[in-house]
Design a protein around this nucleic acid. Sequence first.
DNA 1: AAAATAATAGTAATAGTTACTGTTATTTTA
DNA 2: TAAAATAACAGTAACTATTACTATTATTTT
Lengths: 131, 131
Amino acid sequence: MANVKFSRQREAIREYLASTKSHPTADMVYNQIQSIYPNISLGTVYRNLNLLVEQGDAIKVSCGDGMEHFDSDTSEHYHFICKNCGDVIDLDMECINHINTIAGSAFDGKIDGSITYFYGICPSCLAETKE
Amino acid sequence: MANVKFSRQREAIREYLASTKSHPTADMVYNQIQSIYPNISLGTVYRNLNLLVEQGDAIKVSCGDGMEHFDSDTSEHYHFICKNCGDVIDLDMECINHINTIAGSAFDGKIDGSITYFYGICPSCLAETKE
DNA sequence: AAAATAATAGTAATAGTTACTGTTATTTTA
DNA sequence: TAAAATAACAGTAACTATTACTATTATTTT
């Protein structure tokens, strides 16, 4: 991964992503970084987010709402998506890699991994409903 | 679900979707139906596919390739996505709903369900690689 | 058969994202 | 450390998947 030069904008994006657990979309990152670099371009945000993913410093979370979310936590972990507010929340749970074995037992292809998203109502929406 | 009139185009779409296990995208359905209705519009395909989903006669498969795939099999089952050719294949495996319990055990929100996609190399791509 | 209305084809618009271009910032080299 | 090389930038245009709009056509109701 040579031919990559330092850039202030990329570092700002990297730092912001590392500072939040909110799994922001490119647009959310763009809005945040604008407070530091008012004329940063959305293209720059996309390019750098994708570069961070390529470099293994971030992952994409494709939770099915039509936008990519980004996460600086590259460790294996699971996400919950609130059907009410759309928030993406980290789940504290053990790995469930045994499901790959289950899936592979009657399948002739090679299973390298799986992605699981959990859906429901998040704690804060649950509290609002009860009011 | 009243106020829904019969349409030849919708029935053709429904029949095509029922006849295939290929999990086609709207565009793939459009291309197929054109052999029956040469001037069907892509908008008609999208509208009817979404209607079938609303009526519970099909499901959307959002496997993360930027396009919605459609499936007339509305029973609970799992999908495998080939990282090489992008094919979406049904997996013959038991339900793994216990993972929802695992996920919920340390989470304050309400977990209604989960979606799992398995990734790897499909049998046919595996065969090509070995040549 | 006529009136009502849902669905259509065709087209325009939208959202999220990527590509292009001339300029600027960073790095390399001498 | 200045000049040359080049990656990254901002701004804009283009692209892809999808939805919305509109006048016309097909289906259903009366």
